[in-house]
């Protein structure tokens, strides 16, 4: 755990002028597994999108400790059309994109890597299946296999266990624990405190602003989960922020 993987400098991201992330500064440590928790509308997904480079901050700056192409991002309820005619293997092979680009051929080595990734998420024998035939849990395992193939030092997960069965969650948490031993940085938006305690050494409590940020055990002890008091509705009478 040395050096920053991601540094936030006074980051503000707003929708129609209403801040979803309000003047947040701090550091995601390299090699650490950080969970982002907070109530609905706290800006968790928005912050992750900004780190992934999908949405520029309205104010402030985000510095990455790694190359932009070496950031893997798994969005919440990935916007993949499940009726699309494509096989599981082809989706997992997309993980090679950052290194091979969209034009170079994919050889036996790349294919072997993809198949190993499928085996690592217990999807052996699924390579030729259409993605439309997968269950929710299997679909999420497939997306994790693609993350494995991407082989990135910084991995962003937005509520990766939504609607996923317990057995799959257990397997995927073990995978994330493996990433820790490999020295990868993980930033995940989560809700379940047991999952956070089990697999994440750092946590960020977000309620548009940063409520607390630090080692999981200490932060949980100090703050509990008493962030539910965030007013979820936009305050239209709020005055312009001078900070």
């Amino acid at each position: 755990m040395t050096g920053p993987a991601v540094q936030l400098h006074d980051v503000t991201i707003a929708y129609d002028g209403h801040p979803a992330v309000h003047h947040v500064s701090g550091t995601f440590l390299a090699g650490a597994q950080t969970a982002i928790l907070g109530p609905n509308g706290a800006g968790k997904s928005t912050l992750l999108q900004a780190i992934a480079g999908l949405r520029p901050p309205d104010e402030g700056r985000i510095d990455l400790g790694v190359e932009r192409r070496r950031v893997a991002y798994l969005p919440q309820n990935a916007t993949i059309d499940r009726t699309f005619p494509i096989t599981v293997l082809d989706v997992v092979l997309m993980g090679h994109w950052a290194r091979r680009g969209g034009f170079l051929g994919l050889g036996r080595a790349e294919r072997a890597q993809a198949e190993a990734a499928l085996a690592a998420v217990s999807l052996e024998g699924f390579a030729g299946r259409q993605i439309g035939t997968l269950s929710v849990g299997q679909f999420q395992r497939m997306l994790f296999a693609r993350l494995l193939v991407q082989n990135c030092p910084l991995i962003l997960l937005d509520e990766p266990f939504n609607g996923v069965d317990d057995a799959t969650i257990g397997d995927l948490l073990r995978l994330i624990a493996g990433w820790r031993t490999e020295g990868r940085t993980v930033i995940a938006v989560l809700h379940d405190l047991a999952q956070v305690r089990a697999g994440f050494d750092q946590m960020l409590l977000l309620a548009r602003r940063c409520v607390a940020w630090g080692p999981t055990v200490a932060t949980l002890a100090e703050n509990g989960v008493a962030t539910g008091h965030l007013a979820e509705a936009w305050r239209d009478d709020a005055s312009w922020c001078a900070a």
Binding site: A52, G53, L54, R69, V71, A72, Y73, P75, A78, T79, I80, D81, F84, I86, V91, M94, W97, A98, G101, G102, F103, Q150
Partner: peptide, 20 residues
């Protein structure tokens, strides 16, 4: 030439935006 990027862009535009 652009077959693979087109398929990727249709299947998972968010993914393509992060890698390309």
């Amino acid at each position: 030439l652009i077959f693979r990027p087109l398929v990727a862009e249709m299947l998972d535009p968010d993914f393509l935006r992060t890698v390309d």
